[in-house]
Write a protein that binds this DNA or RNA. Structure first.
Lengths: 351, 351
DNA sequence: CTGAAAGCGCTTACAG
DNA sequence: CTGAAAGCGCTTACAG
């Protein structure tokens, strides 16, 4: 394995200059930099991470703790995020060490990893309302970045989508089409994003379609089965007036709703409009649903590069309160949404 | 953070001696070792991994590549193994870096990780028949250990259970109870362990109960749904004579079989005996099934300590062909198996 | 049984 | 713009 020394000998430069050239220090001459870069490529130079880490005092390792849920439903989104996050961190010379935890104490696994004393920072996933992890890590001065947002005006680094707008955009599309009885199959209530979506949903509905009864909001694991079961119960009409549109937390949930409609002989979008939020998981193509699914669209994996970069910036001393990004999901109108059925543009009745 | 130097100053010893004492070198005097260990504990000494790694030339990082399947069914066993493996490797000062791959080429992701040139070795999971990964890694002299076994007389390190015996033990129990028409819901055919289980099943059946028609062997994802669907079709009797016993690849599959029996009004074990192989996943308690499930039993997570140790030994120069262990699963007889129903002890007919 | 010393491959003040 | 040198915290022949 070629070292800085090899390059320096090859070019008659000092190791220091070679190091500076490769690390993009501005004071290096353009010609020198080019020569160094070429020699590095020619010799197949790769920095020795352990040496870099020893010299800089960083471990180059960041951690992420995955909560295993009691119901054992391995989250499909998990793999997608891990894939991208690992790659994005690797591109920035950081290794990601995963640790799976099954305990009840949300900060205990972080304490445990910190004790081993070899982590530069954390990526926090699956925030819950009033998540205690940011407070704990900040009290110990441990850098981290959160995927999502657990508090209203956080003083920590995070990247997420505007979940209230996800609901509002969907509601606005549907109310413009005349819908008033819109139901929501939300993500699991214990997660912060779900709380934001529900709040956004209720606010947008109140503004455009009328108040929403509790019976028109439900949640469950983000599966086809959840969608099927809830839609079947709502659409059968046994539980009161039927919704004319259903908003789904994920595309698999929407697949279940579509199946329920089919089983009940309801046409989509003739009798029922269906929308979902689309995390753009691989192997799930809402464009190929039948009918093609109207969605709000925000690929989960696109969060990974910003998250990795924020963490690097944070490690390099950037103030975390500057490392905050909220992006707005896109809206893709396809064939699963249409005008409200005639005579059905009647708001929910609050009991 | 305390260093070796701190300890050496504290005790008036050399850094070298402190290092030797802490690393268990035999030549250190017993009293000296004790003093050093006490001082290390008192000062909260933790070795600096980067320094160790730089000095030893090892990265201290091993990789594991997780294949993401097209059907997106995140394997429940995955989390269990990752949890334990991470912990066991950490206890041996190794970090585990996961990489998720979705491509078709089984060795490409290993090549890619190798190019980054910072891995000491790999843990290989989910072996398939004639798995190309061992050959590739051996050709590059990359240490690895396989969870399971992909070849008949491997020349590489691996740890696994005797899958043929898993089937044979189950078949023997059932034939002793008089069963002759035993059906198998196997793990997915693309995995090596499933091929071993099927071969073991057919051999044991041929020896004790008669040959098995292809229609009595099926496979699918290791889910409740797989068990329910297959059992329903077999037990309805539409596809030929009913099995009097069903062997399941996993406990969730058995849960599905039990539900199918219930739905059809069949009693277990009166009309049907049910067995499964139990990976001992958390939150699944075959002892609490109704009836309590008879199983072959081999906790997946118990493979992790041996795997971690084997990898360490391999990294320390042990010849991989010595690092091979096959353990035998246990057999736990509970209430889901019983004597064959009267007059039903008639072998399968091969069409 | 213990120590002095070299070395692992980087980074980064300090000088010029 | 470049270099000489110290230092990061270990490990490990080599000597005694």
């Amino acid at each position: 394995m070629a070292t800085l020394k090899d390059i320096s000998v090859e070019l008659g430069l000092s190791v220091a200059t070679v190091s500076r050239a490769l690390n993009g220090f501005p004071e290096v001459g353009a010609r020198t930099r080019t020569r160094v870069q070429e020699a590095a490529a020619r010799l197949g130079y790769r920095p020795n991470r352990s040496a870099q880490r020893l010299a800089t005092g960083r471990s180059g390792v960041v951690g992420m703790i995955v909560k295993l849920r009691a119901d054992m439903s391995a989250d499909q989104t998990f793999f997608d995020v891990i894939t991208s996050l690992t790659a994005e961190l690797a591109a920035r010379d950081l290794d990601l060490v995963l640790s799976v935890d099954q305990g009840d104490d949300p900060v205990a696994p972080y304490k445990r990893m910190l004790e081993r004393d070899l982590l530069d920072g954390f990526v926090l996933n699956a925030p819950v309302p009033n998540d205690p992890r940011p407070g704990f890590l900040m009290s110990r001065d441990v850098p981290f970045v959160m995927h999502g947002q657990a508090h209203d005006a956080p003083d920590y680094a995070f990247f997420g989508i505007d979940n209230a707008a996800v609901s509002a955009d969907a509601v606005e599309l549907l109310t413009t089409l005349g819908h008033r009885r819109i139901a929501l199959i939300n993500g699991e209530a214990r997660f912060a994003f779900a709380a934001e979506r529900e709040a956004g949903f209720r606010a947008a509905m109140a503004a455009g379609a009328g108040a929403v009864p509790d019976s028109a909001v439900a949640d469950g694991p983000p599966t086809e089965n959840t969608g099927y079961t809830l839609a079947l119960s709502w659409l059968s009409g046994r539980t009161g007036p039927r919704p004319t549109a259903i908003l789904c937390a994920t595309t698999p949930v929407a697949a279940g709703v579509l199946r329920a409609a089919r089983d009940l002989g309801l046409s989509v979008p003739g009798d029922l409009s269906v929308m979902a939020h689309d995390d753009a998981l691989p192997n799930i193509r809402p464009a190929h649903f039948n009918p093609a699914l109207t969605v709000t669209h925000a690929p989960l994996r696109e969060a990974c590069a910003p998250l990795a970069q924020m963490l690097v910036d944070h490690l390099n001393g950037a103030p975390p309160a500057r490392l905050q990004t909220v992006i707005r999901a896109g809206l893709i109108v396809r064939a699963s949404t249409g005008p409200v059925p005639k005579g059905e543009d009647i708001p929910w009745q609050i009991p």
